[in-house]
């Protein structure tokens, strides 16, 4: 088992023939991901990377049975691409696109709230999702991953790679690694993904990588306390960040004293999440803890 993505998924790529879409679709295919086609309006009927190209997502669903969409459409058009996928009945939408206006995501969330599909939107501004050994739908370097019992959920890209690399080096494989993205309004929250990991039989523990800004980590801590039986290890980036400045990610900003490193650490500790202070020790801390008390907390 795993969450969200498996070798049974039927993935299409929106923005399939563009440079980013092509490059990363190829990498995903090389990993053995079940990509069944792609969508580029006006290029329908062509073949790209030995897969069919469709004009619309509706057509891709109808003809290729797509249930998952990986989006590489440029920011000004990304909201439309997400809504098209949702309207076509795609189950899981993963939007990699960086730089989407916040208002567009507010509109997208409104749109999704009255649809029965998708069951889940991941991103935007995220590295995507990988279920090691089964499928990769994203831009992460596949080789650092290995199948195993640890779920990973993160707001950041390369920081996730750092954590996964440490886990793999400590012989701790991953069930599924989910990048939820660094924007103020993400499609899915930490809480959403923790809930999935909690009910996934393969996942025995979760590593959660947050950063300053917003209150998603505090909400996740509250959820953990109420509903989770599996141990969670948390790291928060941005302890040294100045207030009021956006640290690269649109969502990573401390405003009016809210969303600070200290408040997140405190909420997580109080809820019983194991807080890792030193980024370079994530793998070691998880490893030590599992040797001391295998399986669950």
């Amino acid at each position: 088992m795993s969450i969200l993505l498996s070798k049974e998924s039927r993935i299409i790529v929106q923005g399939f023939t563009g440079s980013a879409g092509s490059f990363h679709a190829k990498q995903c295919l090389d990993y053995g991901s079940p990509i069944v086609g792609g969508v580029t309006p006006g290029r329908g009927g062509q073949t790209h990377l030995e897969r069919p190209v469709f004009d619309t997502v509706h057509e891709a669903v109808e003809k290729a049975g797509a249930d998952t969409s990986l989006i590489f459409v440029p920011a000004p058009f990304a909201a439309d691409a997400i809504m098209e996928a949702a309207d076509a009945g795609i189950d899981l939408i993963i939007c990699i696109t960086e730089g989407m206006p916040v208002k567009d995501m507010a509109v997208v969330k409104r749109f999704l709230s009255v649809k029965s599909r998708p069951r889940r939107l991941i991103g935007p501004n995220c590295p995507g999702v990988i279920t090691p050994g089964q499928a990769k739908a994203g831009i992460m370097p596949a080789y650092i991953h290995t199948p195993g019992p640890i779920g990973v959920v993160s707001r950041s890209g390369t920081l996730t790679y750092e954590a996964v690399h440490q886990l793999t080096r400590n012989a701790l494989g991953q069930s599924t690694v989910v990048g939820i993205g660094g924007d103020p309004i993400p499609g899915s929250s930490f809480t959403d993904i923790l809930e999935l990991f909690e009910s996934d039989p393969q996942t025995e523990a979760v590593v959660m990588i947050g950063e300053i800004g917003g209150s998603a980590e505090e909400e996740a801590a509250a959820f953990f306390k109420r509903k989770m039986s599996k141990p969670v290890f948390g790291f928060i980036a941005g302890r040294s960040a100045p207030e009021g400045r956006r640290m690269g990610h649109a969502g990573a900003i401390v405003e009016g004293g809210a969303g600070t490193h200290a408040s997140k650490i405190k909420a997580m500790r109080e809820a019983g999440i194991v807080v890792v202070e030193n980024l370079s020790e994530i793998g070691d801390v998880v490893s030590r803890s599992r040797q001391a008390a295998p399986a669950s907390r």
């Binding site: 993160s154 707001r155 950041s156 890209g157 390369t158 920081l159 996730t160 790679y161 750092e162 660094g182 990588i209 950063e211 300053i212 790291f235 980036a237 941005g238 040294s240 960040a241 640290m247 690269g248 990610h249 990573a252 980024l279």
Partner: peptide
């Protein structure tokens, strides 16, 4: 990467 940049700081 922004997250890793913060983590490095």
């Amino acid at each position: 990467g922004a997250g890793l940049a913060m983590g490095t700081m």
